[in-house]
Design a binder for these strands. Structure first.
Lengths: 233, 233
DNA sequence: GACGAAAATTGCGTGCGCGCAAGTTTGCGT
DNA sequence: ACGCAAACTTGCGCGCACGCAATTTTCGTC
């Protein structure tokens, strides 16, 4: 159900990639305001209408070229960590790992994105998409930890009719969801700060003078560590 | 600077109120899909263009009639708590206080909002607007707590040229920002759950069967309590 | 290999969001 | 009281987002 065979999905991803790369290329060439969605669609070889089946806004397409599916890979990276490592470490390391070198080659693109307000907003909001996958990964970890204690009700799953107070399972999922949302929000704050202040652009032509992104990410996630620690006890 | 004299702002708020109430009334009368923004503007006695100076989307206007400025009052409520109470309690109580009776009189409106996906999304995203004011309130609290220890550098404020590692002051603001973002995200999750499952609408014609909103709010904020506690030490 | 169902693409039409450049109102200083 | 500057409103125009229904493409099955 997740992997929908192959060729179909493959083509979809190809189209998606073509679209976002066309969007970025054209935006860089002409400036973001001189790019119509028709141009992007044409450059990618699809109809304008199809373009909107892939991206809900023009900004999204441009930003996606830099963002790619980084946020979805965060969840995978968290899941990949051995269950023995602390949840907080797993999450933080996974995020920092995915966000280091956020596109050194996209330096020009980043400059453009951080310049235009509309693009900046789309870029800052990107981490929101990590929330649900991350929630699942965190929930899995919390469940795994509890596994040692109770082996009884392993396969009591969705669809059941619980109408008021949730089961322990429900609680864990809810907690995971909240933590994931909090983490995503912290990442958003980090990126906002990283990108937010054009500030004194300094002497060198460096893209962003605000400090290293990994550092900002760790600093932003640090306040949440107690919450993550508490959750796995 | 904050209170811009009076009559001007007063009229603005009046127009804003007229717009959101017209939006809600028309949406309830005709159904949300049969309301053009022109209708709303006309009903409020302004031009369609002006309508868009107040609300960025049609959904926003309708939802605002139920939401009002609740989120902005959360920050005020937090600030109003005496500094002796625990930060976590101040935040949680303030939020629960603002969200209890989220519009008992707007029952019909809530039903409509939770039904239409577009409106639901706008409603769920509403708490995002509490983030910045809340961050300021939390920062003030953290600063106040520290005040007893250090009275030395009290008025070392913005505008200074710090180009890399932030001062302690900076750190505190950053922490506050992250915590506020996390709290807002948790509230969003709570509302999402509250609204998300139309579920079995139960026998009674009750609006939302998912459990009490205050309960959900407390449950969603609970995982963040350790983080809030840790921040004020 | 061919068929039927599911999925993706496309054209079309409608309403909306918003930049821009007037025109109009409000409020402050003197 | 008067006038000027700043704030707000409005009309206009341009793309864009998206629902809908028809068309084409893909994929499991026989």
């Amino acid at each position: 159900m997740a992997r929908r065979t192959g060729l179909r999905e493959q083509k979809k991803q190809a189209t998606r990639k073509a679209l976002r790369e066309a969007a970025l290329r054209l935006a860089l060439e002409r400036g973001p305001d001189n790019v119509r969605v028709d141009d992007i669609a044409e450059a990618a070889g699809v109809s304008p209408r199809t373009y909107n089946n892939y991206f809900a806004s023009r900004e999204q397409a441009i930003v996606a070229a830099v963002t790619a599916e980084r946020e979805s890979r965060v969840a995978e990276a968290v899941a990949a960590r051995p269950p023995s490592v602390r949840l907080a470490d797993a999450v933080i390391d996974a995020i920092v790992e995915q966000y280091t070198d956020p596109g050194e080659e996209h330096a020009a693109a980043l400059l453009m994105i951080t310049t235009r307000p509309a693009l900046r907003e789309a870029f800052v909001d990107a981490p929101a998409s990590m929330e649900l996958p991350l929630a699942a990964a965190i929930a899995a970890r919390l469940a795994a930890r509890r596994e040692g204690g109770e082996a009884a009700d392993a396969a009591r799953d969705s669809g059941a009719d619980r109408d008021d107070a949730g089961s322990d399972d429900d609680d864990r999922e809810h907690t995971a969801r909240v933590l994931a949302a909090a983490v995503a929000a912290a990442v958003r704050v980090a990126i906002d700060r990283w990108v937010g202040r054009p500030g004194a652009a300094s002497a060198s032509g460096l893209v962003v003078p605000s400090g290293s992104l990994p550092g900002l990410l760790r600093a932003s996630l640090a306040p949440l560590v107690p919450a993550l620690d508490a959750a796995e006890r």
